[in-house]
């Protein structure tokens, strides 16, 4: 399995001098294609900083970020922008859907920005909406959708086209547990199809969908889960009363 994303000794410091604050300290993590990794930590632990640096939305103070083997620091600004549009999908807590556009237009937008013709972009967008189970809402404006539907549109926009990396910050937002589970099934399915995924969360149920859970405290990666044996080991032995 090839490595899609690699953070090597990444440190991010904000401010300088006596007011300097290190949000992330020498963080190293690699995510393979098809793997879903959860970064789990409390508020202010540095998990969102890690995600924005992983997605090229921010640059580290030191250390490097490799995307499919290429150091983001070696790319020009335009090349980084193109990479973000075409290869990396983001799901933010705020979703950032444009209310004046329909669901299909929201999903098609990054493709059109990347030069795809409108008709073709719409066809690809429809396939993504189909994948998340709301193709029937393609013509609805974002504001007319329920919270769960908006979340699905945001995920469709993040996985549309040939994205190889999906980054999500608390992707189930304020959804109830059953709708939140639907969202995680979609994220899981995208990863099972070969996309590398990173979600940051403080929610254990959400993190449990990942192949690996990485714990972060005070900007430092402190621990990682190991894969347990098969689920049959969890079944209570005969004789349970």
């Amino acid at each position: 399995m090839s490595t899609t994303l690699e953070l090597c000794d990444v440190t991010r410091t904000f401010g300088s001098g006596s007011t300097a604050f290190t949000a992330l300290s020498e963080a190293s993590i690699a995510v393979d294609a098809g793997e879903l990794v959860a970064i789990m930590g409390p508020s202010g632990s540095g998990k969102s900083t890690l995600l924005t640096i992983a997605g090229g939305l921010d640059v580290p103070s030191s250390g490097s970020v490799l995307f499919e083997g290429s150091d983001l620091a070696s790319l020009t600004r335009d090349e980084r922008s193109k990479l973000r549009r075409s290869s990396i999908g983001y799901v933010f807590q705020e979703l950032n859907l444009l209310s004046s556009l329909t669901a299909a237009e929201n999903v098609a937008m990054p493709l059109e920005l990347d030069g795809l013709r409108a008709k073709q972009a719409r066809r690809v967008a429809m396939a993504a909406l189909e994948q998340v189970g709301i193709a029937d809402k393609a013509g609805s404006f974002a504001d007319d959708l329920s919270g769960g539907e908006r979340q699905r549109v945001a995920i469709a926009r993040a996985v549309v086209g040939e994205r190889s990396l999906l980054l999500a910050d608390e992707p189930t937002g304020a959804l109830d547990s059953v709708n939140g589970e639907d969202v995680m099934r979609i994220v899981r399915s995208a990863c099972d199809s070969g996309t590398a995924g990173v979600i940051v969360t403080h929610d254990a149920q959400l993190a449990a969908w990942a192949d690996r859970v990485v714990f972060i405290r005070d900007g430092v990666i402190t621990d990682t889960t190991q894969q347990m044996p098969g689920p049959e080991s969890l079944i209570i032995a005969d004789g349970a009363t």
Binding site: A204, F215, M228, P231
Partner: peptide
């Protein structure tokens, strides 16, 4: 916390299946 998460991951895989 890590050990509990590992069990939760295994249960979640079972639920997904």
């Amino acid at each position: 916390r890590r050990q509990t998460l590992e069990v939760m991951q295994a249960y979640t895989r079972t639920k997904a299946d």
